[in-house]
């Protein structure tokens, strides 16, 4: 169980135009073990969704994927021909999307769509596939599965659709499930149901989950490890508990402080900590640390060279000032959350 099922090494994703490639994800490495949830957190433009698509070989042109490896159970997916990729996709690595409707075919019943995934990857009879599909619908807690089997996607609510997409993703018991903002389009009470469902299925099947999200609350409650992306680069990766107890990178700290916390406001309203400015555009990436222009503790050296990822506790962080921050405000790190 300790061997990672997915290992990404030095992944690069960029956009090609007029003979030049503008990098969007740079030098990204991470790994996920069976039964583990790795959350990839970032804001728009961080490259988190692009990373998700790259894992499944789904980056559309003009996107270009390169790098050392996307090793899924020991097999490198980078450079694999489309035909071989298709054998892997849906069988060993599957994906669920932000908007479930985009992943469903409106003219097929949900039962047919789940059966299709099974028949595509396994030599089983349609009868067996149907039995499996019904079982999957029950597994994702769709009530009255027998009847729902014959429903078309538009007849279902957003939450039910996402359950169907999850059933399709899990149809062939993949080793890795990539969930790209799976609950962003859903209401908060439905979000809780779906995230709990993913957790339960992960525990039951030992699936490795890559959870792409912008919501740190979701991460705190559902992830084992957290990878923070900023402008296409990993700035911090730690065990979730450690990261929220003592975030190291100034960006991670900014993200946590910028978010109003439920039940966190007393009678007097403390100002939210702002991160000034906005994420730099792909075409205008600053030299050195991409966060330096917005960073409260940046110094001249930060704008000169890229900060290397250095080991820190249960993970790593890429910040030149991280040692100084530690020394200057040890108390702050310990009281981020009581």
């Amino acid at each position: 169980m300790s061997e990672p099922v997915l290992q990404v090494r030095r992944l690069n994703v960029g956009f090609a135009s007029r003979g030049r490639v503008t990098p969007a994800v740079r030098d990204l490495s991470f790994s996920v073990k069976a039964g583990e949830t790795l959350a990839i957190v970032g804001e728009s433009g961080s490259g988190k969704s692009l990373t998700a698509f790259a894992l499944l070989g789904l980056v559309p042109p003009p996107g270009v994927v390169s790098g050392e490896a996307i090793a899924l159970e020991g097999r490198n997916l980078i450079g694999l021909p489309e035909k071989r990729l298709r054998e892997v996709r849906g069988a060993r690595i599957a994906m669920i999307f932000q908007e479930p409707m985009t992943a469903l075919n409106p003219v097929l019943t949900i039962g047919e769509q789940i059966m299709e995934v099974i028949l595509e990857h396994e030599r089983v009879s349609p009868r067996a596939a149907k039995a499996r599909a019904l079982e999957l619908l029950a597994q994702v807690r769709i009530p009255d599965a027998e009847r729902r089997f014959h429903d078309y996607p538009h007849r279902l609510s957003g939450g039910m659709r996402q359950r169907v997409v999850i059933a399709m993703a899990l149809a062939c018991a993949p080793a890795v499930l990539v969930a790209d903002e799976p609950t962003t389009a859903l209401d908060v009470t439905i979000q809780a149901q779906i995230l709990d469902l993913i957790d339960t299925l992960k525990r039951e099947h030992g699936t490795a989950v890559v959870l792409i999200t912008h919501d740190l609350g979701v991460v705190a409650e559902h992830a084992d490890r957290v990878l923070v992306l900023y402008a296409g680069r990993k700035v911090e990766e730690r065990a979730a508990r450690d990261l929220f107890a003592a975030p190291l990178h100034p960006y991670t700290r900014g993200l946590i402080a910028a978010r109003p916390r439920l039940g966190g406001r007393g009678a007097v309203r403390a100002r939210l900590t702002e991160i000034p400015g906005t994420v730099p555009g792909l075409a205008a990436m600053p030299d050195g640390c991409a966060f330096a222009p917005r960073c409260p503790v940046a110094e001249a050296a930060c704008t000169l060279a890229l900060p290397p990822l250095v080991p820190a506790g249960t993970g790593s962080v890429a910040c030149l000032r991280v040692g100084d921050i530690h020394a200057a405000e040890p108390e702050r790190l310990s009281v981020v959350h009581a």
Partner: peptide
């Protein structure tokens, strides 16, 4: 009030 730089023109 925070200082805002204009987006890349």
């Amino acid at each position: 009030m925070s200082l805002i730089t204009l987006a890349a023109p």
